[in-house]
């Protein structure tokens, strides 16, 4: 469903993403790991068609982002980093606007939004202005907007960043639930999250893919089973006792 082919991005002399390849299928949650500034968000922005890639391509449900961006975008639900929203709108009004922009059938919009509001536990803030909401609610509104058109591919850029432990738990539970029907790419630097929700993970550092495999494979590289040690060795190139990569 999602195939990323040798995608690269450079800003002047700076190579932000360097020939990254991966693919993900329906029912799969692919974790996208890396230190800050590794190129995670840039890669996601290229997949969603917000940024043009310098070379390479991403294929979303058979449509190339370079050649048929609108078709690819209609199959993607995207939660950008920091979950930006139109703060002056009301939650329900905002979701209605997104539904219309996503060309949903106008008769079905109302019931679809009811479902989404229930799914993302937004019932109690439905008629509040977004700017008055807490961070946790804003994240959930952002997640809700990515789901209104029932996309086949979900791209989530640090969806649990800044949430409290309970909220993180809720979001992960929702992701788990959605993963049966969708292909999900989730970026994070919270390593427990990877073990909890991801079927596979990719680690990138300085724009290059450094590792691809299951969280278990990642964990097994450390004798003590400490995933954070493996992450450190892979991304910094340091050596550490009991970790073999």
């Amino acid at each position: 469903m999602l195939e990323v082919r040798d995608i690269s991005k450079s800003f002047g002399d700076f190579q932000a993403v360097d020939s990254v390849n991966f693919s993900a299928n329906k029912g799969e949650v692919l974790g996208f790991l890396g230190p800050n500034g590794a190129g995670k968000s840039t890669t996601m922005k290229m997949i969603t068609g917000f940024l043009n890639s310098s070379s390479g391509d991403a294929i979303v449900c058979g449509a190339s982002v370079n050649e048929k961006p609108l078709e690819a975008q209609s199959n993607i639900g995207y939660v950008p980093e920091n979950a930006p929203l139109y703060e002056e709108m009301y939650v329900r009004e905002f979701l209605e606007f997104i539904s219309k922009m996503r060309s949903l059938d106008s008769n079905k919009i109302s019931s679809r939004i009811d479902d989404i509001i229930k799914m993302c536990s937004l019932k109690e803030v439905e008629f509040q202005k977004i700017e008055t909401l807490s961070k946790g609610y804003k994240r959930r509104v952002s997640l809700a907007q990515s789901l209104v058109h029932d996309p086949k591919v979900l791209i989530l850029d640090e969806p649990t960043d800044g949430l409290d432990p309970n909220q993180k738990h809720d979001v992960r539970k929702l992701i788990k639930k959605l993963s049966k029907e969708k292909c999900i790419l989730i970026s994070t630097h919270i390593l427990e999250e990877v073990e909890e929700v991801c079927d596979r993970c990719i680690i990138i550092g300085e724009g290059k893919k450094l590792f691809e495999g299951t969280p278990k494979e990642l964990k097994d590289k450390s004798e003590k089973g400490r995933i954070q040690d493996v992450f450190r060795v892979i991304t910094t190139g340091e050596s550490m006792q009991g970790v073999a990569v």
């Binding site: 068609g49 609108l70 209609s74 995207y78």
Partner: peptide, 8 residues
Amino acid sequence: ELLLTMPI
């Protein structure tokens, strides 16, 4: 980013 990743 939200706006321009919608089909517009």
